[in-house]
Simulated assay, not measured.
Amino acid sequence: MSTDLHVIAVIEGKPGSAETIKAVATPCIEATRKEPGCLKYNLHQDQARPDHFIFVEHWASSEILDQHNKAPHLKALVDGLADLTIKPLEVSVLKELF
């Protein structure tokens, strides 16, 4: 059985925050993609709602994801988004069944 995990993280930005959110996210994306066990870390922008973003992530294991969650670049992202969003980051950690 596979031990890898998928993560979906939703960012609900305040109106007009899209460009700033992308700028805040870029350093975290670049650093995260270099982490061992990061299989995918992509940010998507909703074309109908440009201030709405979704991270799609793929991690080799829960232990590796735990390490990522302690990374300073992730903390910087979360802190940087605090004043740009209408609600806290919504994160779902998923285990593929089929």
Rank of each mutant, 00 (worst) to 15 (best):
F53H: 02
I86T: 12
A82C: 06
H52T: 11
L74K: 04
I86P: 04
K95D: 12
T85M: 12
H52C: 06
P15S: 01
S17K: 01
A31N: 06
T26E: 15
A18L: 06
D66M: 06
P72Q: 05
E96W: 01
L94K: 05
P88C: 08
M1A: 13
A60I: 03
L65P: 02
D51A: 14
D4M: 12
L43S: 07
E19F: 02
H73N: 08
T26F: 15
D51F: 11
L81Y: 05
V91P: 05
I54A: 09
Q67H: 07
H52M: 13
D66R: 12
P88Y: 15
A71G: 00
A76S: 13
E57V: 00
A71L: 00
T26K: 15
T32H: 02
V78H: 04
L39K: 12
L43F: 14
E30A: 04
E63L: 03
E35A: 01
E57P: 00
R49A: 15
H58I: 01
Y41A: 01
I11H: 13
L5Q: 08
G16V: 08
Y41C: 02
C28G: 07
I64G: 04
T3K: 14
S61H: 14
M1P: 10
V24I: 05
T20C: 02
L97T: 12
S92T: 03
L89R: 04
D66T: 12
H58E: 10
S2I: 13
R33I: 09
N69A: 09
L43H: 09
R49H: 15
I54K: 03
A76E: 13
E12A: 14
E90I: 10
G13K: 11
I21Y: 03
V10M: 06
A31I: 01
H68K: 10
H44S: 08
S2E: 15
R33G: 08
L43C: 09
E30L: 11
M1L: 14
Q67E: 05
P72V: 07
E90M: 12
A18R: 06
Q67T: 07
K87N: 11
S61I: 09
G13I: 07
G37H: 05
E57D: 00
Q45R: 11
G16S: 08
T20G: 02
H6V: 00
D66W: 06
V7P: 00
H52N: 10
L39R: 13
S17M: 03
P50G: 09
I29V: 11
D66L: 06
E63C: 03
V56Y: 14
I64M: 11
K14V: 10
L81D: 04
K14A: 14
F98N: 11
A76N: 12
V93T: 06
K70Q: 10
E35N: 00
D83G: 08
L65I: 00
Y41S: 01
K87Q: 15
K75N: 13
V78F: 02
A25E: 01
I8T: 09
S61T: 10
L39V: 11
K75C: 04
V91F: 04
E96P: 12
I29D: 01
E35I: 01
L84W: 07
P27Q: 01
D4R: 11
P15D: 08
K40H: 13
A60P: 02
A23Q: 15
H52S: 11
S92A: 05
T20N: 08
W59F: 00
R49D: 14
S62D: 14
L81F: 03
